[in-house]
């Protein structure tokens, strides 16, 4: 476990910024205590200072997961967000998509969101903007990338993809062994 280097921090913030914009500041500078990002086994964890001190006493080989895993660095040093970061993305998300109850299940099985399943979408969402996907009851289901801007969404046919799937809470069941 170690702090992120400058380049790694930049990669993480750039990826997070696609979903929550400048709200990353609220993650870095929290009024309720000191929180930090730490790298462990190529994964980035977000944890409190208190937890950090406890986790520091665990041998590296025995440490499975300190704090919340935000994602992992690939071998080519690209950062991938994982669904475990959803708890921190959902409250700060700038662009949201609500999915109709009928197509919730399809999304939770790892499929893209189609126009027919689109309940609501934040105004002025640009194309390829990172969005957080909610159910109509405002339960965060996952996140993805807008395939169409809000304007285009109105005109496309019902079977067109509106949001590209990136992660959903169904992964907690599907990828139970690799999520940490």
């Amino acid at each position: 476990m170690r702090p992120l280097t400058e380049a790694e921090t930049r990669a993480v913030f750039e990826k997070l910024g696609r979903y929550i914009g400048e709200n990353i500041q609220l993650l870095v500078d929290r009024p309720d205590g000191t929180y930090c990002f730490r790298l462990h086994c190529d994964r980035v964890y977000y944890l409190s200072e208190k937890l950090l001190k406890v986790a520091a006493s665990v041998p590296r080989d025995n440490l499975v997961s300190p704090g919340t895993c935000f994602g992992k660095f690939t071998k080519t040093q690209k950062f991938r967000l994982s669904v475990t970061a959803l708890d921190f993305l959902a409250p700060y998300a700038k662009y949201k998509v609500w999915v109709k109850p009928g197509s919730e299940q399809s999304f939770l099985y790892g499929n893209h969101v189609l126009k027919s399943g689109l309940g609501r979408i934040t105004e002025n969402t640009a194309q390829y903007q990172g969005v957080v996907v909610y159910s109509m009851a405002d339960v965060p289901l996952g996140f993805g990338v807008a395939a169409k801007s809000t304007q285009e969404c109105r005109k496309v046919d019902p079977m067109a993809i509106v949001v590209f799937h990136q992660a959903d809470v169904g992964e907690y069941v599907r990828n139970e062994d690799t999520l940490t």
Binding site: T9, V28, T34, A56
Partner: peptide, 15 residues
């Protein structure tokens, strides 16, 4: 690992 957390935070905010 357990360095100056305040400095780390200010560095990240600067970034």
């Amino acid at each position: 690992l357990l360095g100056n957390l305040a400095a780390e935070r200010s560095r990240q905010l600067e970034l």
